[in-house]
């Protein structure tokens, strides 16, 4: 297997489009005939009150959540996602680190290869652990690592999969503020060039690392897009424009939350 460039995905990242997608939970529509287009090679954030269906939408794109017939999830213009089928283009990163407690950091990073019965590329895994700042913790069991370190291992595992699309479900929400800022920066740097969907309830996180922000609200949920300050990601949280947009987003989210 030839060594690939680690920071950029091998081929141009495909975009994702959803059309007419509906999902019911216990008879109630979480969303109905929803359309969404996630631009290729960019990070799109999905904001909204909890319980609105953000995670379900992400799981649906990941192929983990079956949806109502009639909807379509298309990846890369040619691959129509079948409901309940996962795609080889997607890597998934959840709120919990989901590290296997019986595998050390290196074993967790190379988990995907072993699940597919491939030979794990240990050199690349070590290199990725180095990039997330865990050079000395290759053989540490997850229980001995701090929350931030564990989530870094999870990030390295996500990168190890080397997929053009990354779906992240509140990946940093369980971390303390400082660790979260560091990891956002690291993720933004290492995942540049890929198509990312970031589900988050933190407007500042969305403002820091995404190029598009969608707000999901109501029942059945509707999507609307928010404006973003100019400039490269990761954006400085102290920047006046970022703070201004943050206030604006908070206002929109609280009105969204007030709606029945």
């Amino acid at each position: 297997m030839p060594q690939k460039t680690l920071s950029a995905s091998p081929q141009p990242a495909p975009g994702i489009s959803l059309s007419g997608v509906s999902l019911r939970y216990e008879g109630v529509y979480l969303f109905k005939e929803l359309d969404l287009c996630l631009p290729a090679g960019q990070c799109s954030a999905l904001l909204g009150p909890s319980g609105v269906g953000k995670s379900s939408l992400l799981r649906l794109i990941a192929g983990l959540q079956p949806f109502e017939p009639g909807g379509r999830v298309t990846i890369a213009e040619n691959e129509a996602q079948q409901t309940g089928k996962t795609s080889a283009n997607i890597a998934y990163m959840a709120q919990q680190d989901l590290l296997m407690p019986w595998l050390d950091a290196l074993g967790n990073v190379t988990l995907g290869a072993r699940l597919r019965h491939e030979r794990p590329d240990h050199a690349r895994a070590r290199d990725l652990l180095h990039q997330v700042g865990l050079t000395d913790y290759q053989h540490a069991l997850p229980a001995t690592l701090s929350g931030g370190m564990r989530q870094r291992v999870a990030l390295a595992r996500t990168l190890m999969e080397d997929r053009p699309i990354i779906l992240m479900d509140e990946p940093f929400s369980a971390l303390d503020a400082i660790t979260r800022l560091r990891l956002q920066e690291l993720a933004a740097k290492l995942l540049r060039g890929r198509t990312i969907l970031l589900v988050t309830h933190d407007p500042l996180e969305a403002l820091r690392i995404s190029q598009r922000i969608f707000i999901m609200a109501g029942r059945p949920a509707r999507l609307s897009e928010a404006t973003l300050p100019d400039g490269e990601t990761p954006r400085d949280p102290a920047d006046a424009a970022v703070l201004h947009h943050h206030a604006e987003l908070l206002r929109r989210l609280s009105t969204a939350d007030a709606q029945p």
């Binding site: 799981r59 983990l64 959840a94 296997m100 988990l111 995907g112 072993r114 699940l115």
Partner: peptide, 21 residues
């Protein structure tokens, strides 16, 4: 359940999910 989800996105078969996770 999160482990099962993760394994599925990594392309694990049901059998591999059973034996490895």
């Amino acid at each position: 359940p999160g482990w099962a989800d993760l394994a599925r996105t990594m392309g694990a078969s049901r059998w591999t999910l059973l034996t490895r996770i």
